[in-house]
């Protein structure tokens, strides 16, 4: 796995906990990514057309809602998606069970590994 996959890539980040959001954005920027961070589902949704992300890192639980619908829309646009969650891995509904998931707290190598998995699944 290599953090080089982030170089110049446009990464959409959805995370409602500000400190964790800052951490993941910082980690991604350090790895060379262009990051667009959002704390609400609506703002992330609106950013899809404007920002045109190459990759997306989504927290599953956002203010008592889930980001599954957003993940489905990104998948339709063939944007590789990974979930970041504080809940156990494997707790997703069946339709989203195949989406690579990192468990909090995570580091950049875990995110890189999951995104590589998402990219290869997407191009398969």
């Amino acid at each position: 796995m290599s953090e080089a996959i982030f170089n110049q890539r446009r990464v959409l980040v959805l995370e409602d906990e500000p400190i964790i959001a800052m951490l993941v954005e910082q980690m991604l920027e350090d790895a060379g990514a262009l990051v667009d961070g959002h704390a609400t589902l609506a703002s992330a949704e609106a950013a899809i057309d404007r920002f045109r992300p190459d990759l997306a890192v989504l927290d599953v639980n956002i203010h008592n809602e889930t980001s599954y619908a957003l993940a489905a829309r990104l998948a339709d646009l063939r944007v590789p998606v990974i979930f970041a969650t504080g809940y156990g891995i494997g707790a997703h509904p069946e339709a989203f069970a195949q989406i690579p998931t990192v468990s909090k707290p995570y580091d950049i190598s875990e995110i890189a590994a999951a995104l590589e998995q998402a990219i290869s699944a997407n191009s398969a």
């Binding site: 906990e17 400190i19 964790i20 959001a21 800052m22 951490l23 910082q26 980690m27 504080g86 809940y87 156990g88 468990s103 909090k104 707290p105 995570y106």
Partner: peptide
């Protein structure tokens, strides 16, 4: 509870970085 603890560890990581 696990979720809260994991989230808290992630926040501690974020605080440490900053």
């Amino acid at each position: 509870l696990n979720h809260r603890v994991k989230n808290t560890l992630a926040i501690v990581k974020g605080l440490a970085m900053q």
